[in-house]
Nucleic acid binder design. Structure first.
Ligand SMILES: [Zn+2]
Length: 209
DNA sequence: TATGCCGGGTC
DNA sequence: GACCCGGCATA
């Protein structure tokens, strides 16, 4: 029963030490808009915005610098011999047509064990299935999924554009008016009172919009 | 789920 | 045409 660790455990164990970097490449975004580098603190995904239009290597160096600074700044009270950090990144291509929202920095560069998202994920992760982790990020639904099949330290991110409103599938079809038609006024039991079109299931002529 | 109605059928 | 109905979109 214990010969294989659960996916949650598989992720939890190495994440004590490593950081997961996720690089987002935005192919069709406005050139002026910057890309998002996602710096993940364990399961709590944090976002560093404002990175220059980046190649993965550029982004990588950014994150390495960031991680180095973190080590120098935080390790003063630590043993000092136990802060080897590994960086991994994966890329997710997303198509965006509007500028990215500014994500807060509240989760940025925080130790995994202090990260509320990470702890929440831990508390949720008692099961054996690696489900998607939803990251609250303003209006942009960002979700991370840990696939048991892929490498342990890789987290896949997906960002989908917010669906604003609904485009009618058929422009020709008239959208339903708010006026009550014969069917609703007289009811099914008084169908003889309906107008002819309503009887024929056509557009009502008595209570036109 | 109920309503409105388009498209298409039959007579 | 008149009449009916399946099926779809939408509230
Ligand atoms: Zn009517």
């Amino acid at each position: 029963m214990q010969e294989s660790e659960t996916a949650a455990e598989a992720v939890r164990r190495p994440l004590r030490r490593c950081r997961v970097l996720v690089c987002l490449r935005l192919p069709r975004i406005d050139p002026g808009a910057t890309q998002l580098g996602l710096y993940s603190s364990a399961l709590g995904l944090a976002v560093t915005s404002g990175l220059q239009p980046a190649t993965p290597s550029r982004l990588m160096s950014e994150i390495l610098t960031l991680g180095k600074r973190r080590n120098e700044g935080e390790d003063e009270g630590m043993a000092g011999d136990d802060h080897e950090e590994e960086f991994y990144y994966t890329e997710v291509e997303i198509g965006l047509t509007s500028p990215l929202p500014t994500l807060s920095h509240r989760d940025m560069a925080r130790p995994a064990h202090e990260d509320p998202e990470y702890q929440k994920a831990l508390s949720m992760g008692s099961g054996n299935t690696a489900g998607p982790i939803s990251i609250p990020s303003n209006s942009w639904p960002v979700s991370a999924a840990i696939s048991p099949s892929c490498s342990q330290k890789q987290i896949k991110l997906s960002v989908s554009a917010p669906s604003s409103g609904r485009v009618p599938s058929s422009p020709s079809r008239r959208l339903r008016g708010d006026t009550k038609k014969c069917r609703k006024v007289y009811g099914m039991e008084h169908r003889d009172l309906w107008c002819t079109q309503c009887k024929w299931k056509k557009a009502c002529t008595r209570f036109g919009d």
